[in-house]
């Protein structure tokens, strides 16, 4: 009985962690190339959740189509933000503080843009998968299973792109030294474009998963800040770090919540502060001296 309870919580934790991972790799990818925390990412995730919601309710498209639309919508949005907001700053070689503040501005803009154009009321996704399958005495909801599969497959594809393709090699090179990358003939604008596109697509997937599991409202971008905590915990700038950090954070968060659900956010943000004090490079990150 007890074991079953813990296993169930573990599965819930992996679901949550997988979703965090989809979000946190976006933070990590951008940080690894541009050395700043892209807080507009929360807004991109939120817009993804809305795209999915309206695709399902207004356009009444099948789940898979809605899911892909989320990726396309958020991917485009991330690229547009990069072109409109960060690209001018890059050309001026602005300090990273300017990027962070502009990112926060973009995030607040997106939130209010949605409130102004749609409205601020929370919405629930239609129930898509209510069935569950039994594995032994463990009951696994189809929606949970879907979350785990989607996260795992998306992250696997991302890792293959980063580790095995030419553009992936260029991304890894530029993440170490952009100037040296340029001397190899790498177009750093293209690298940045691809990084925002990939981060954005995964953010869209994550937004839809979030909406299906919880709720859609303009402020869910703030909730997704927890995935930023996961990225810091795993080591900002490191992709494997972001994934491991997210899974651990998801599992820990669920177990803390099972003790007392009001401790949930307290725990997550306390962890952020503790990591920054004790080991700012996180579990797998580079030493902070490398990239301020």
């Amino acid at each position: 009985m007890d074991l079953q309870y813990y296993l169930q919580q573990l599965v819930n934790g992996i679901c949550l962690g997988g979703m965090y991972a989809l979000m946190s790799v976006g933070y990590s990818l951008v940080y690894s190339i541009m050395s700043f925390s892209n807080f507009a990412h929360g807004g991109v995730i939120m817009v993804g959740a809305y795209v999915g919601f309206f695709a399902l309710t207004a356009l009444k498209v099948p789940f898979l189509v809605a899911f892909l639309l989320c990726g396309v919508g958020s991917g485009l949005l991330a690229v547009i933000i990069e072109r409109l907001v960060y690209s001018p700053l890059r050309k001026r070689k602005a300090p990273s503080l300017y990027f962070i503040i502009s990112a926060m501005g973009a995030s607040i803009f997106l939130e209010n843009f949605v409130i102004a154009t749609i409205d601020g009321t929370p919405r629930n996704y239609p129930t898509l998968f209510s069935n569950s399958i039994k594995i032994g005495s463990l009951s696994l909801g189809l929606d949970s299973l879907l979350m785990i599969i989607v996260s795992a497959v998306s992250l696997l594809v991302l890792m293959i792109i980063i580790q095995k393709t030419k553009i992936g090699l260029a991304i890894r090179a530029c993440s170490y030294n952009e100037k040296a990358g340029t001397l190899m003939g790498i177009n750093s604008s293209l690298v940045i474009f691809v990084v925002f596109l990939m981060g954005g697509v995964l953010a869209g997937f994550a937004g839809m998963l979030y909406g299906m599991r919880f709720i859609v409202k303009p402020t869910i971008g703030q909730v997704t800040n927890k995935s930023f905590v996961a990225a810091v915990f795993g080591g900002l700038g490191s992709l494997p770090g972001a994934i491991v950090g997210s899974l651990l954070l998801g599992i820990m968060e669920i177990f803390v919540a099972s003790i007392n659900s009001s401790l949930r956010d307290l725990f997550v943000y306390a962890l952020l502060i503790i990591v920054l004090i004790i080991k700012p490079s996180g579990l797998m990150g580079k030493p902070v001296e490398d990239k301020a």
């Binding site: 090179a173 170490y176 040296a180 001397l183």
Partner: peptide, 10 residues
């Protein structure tokens, strides 16, 4: 380049 600027992570 001066200082080599190799990609130390690769």
């Amino acid at each position: 380049p001066e200082g080599r600027l190799i990609f130390a992570n690769l």
